[in-house]
Amino acid sequence: MSKRLLYVEDNFADVTLFKEFLPEHIELMVISNGEQAQEYLGKLEKNGSLLPELIVLDINLPDISGFELLKTIKGSEALNHIPTIMFSSSSNERDVKNAYSHAANGYVTKEMDIDDYSHKLKSFIRYWFKTTELPEVIQ
């Protein structure tokens, strides 16, 4: 069964790279701005549709910032259980602290070296899907 991943990222090149190294059997939803992402999640919640099992957020988005979006997700009872990872090229301490203070489940930097990037991306996605996988019975 495939896993659902929501990636909020406005940069086409980043999305392309992300897709390039994304492990198989993942159903990827890409949204390129914060408000649309909020809207999308709100709709899923209302309709009782299947929620993503992992959310990956860029920090710099064209409208609201990734942090704002993170706040909304972690402030929502219906969504706050979804592992949400900040994925950014910034290694600024302030950004990292900001992420965790808003209850991000992880902060991953976009590596400069393509091999490192690919390795990191695959690892954290596998890690979070594995960690949050529930036993068959409950599913």
């Binding site: 090149a13 790279l17 390039e20």
Partner: peptide, 16 residues
Amino acid sequence: HDLKEPLRMISGFSRL
């Protein structure tokens, strides 16, 4: 910091 972004693309995609 901002220079690193496009650079990551140049480097990443040339390697790819």
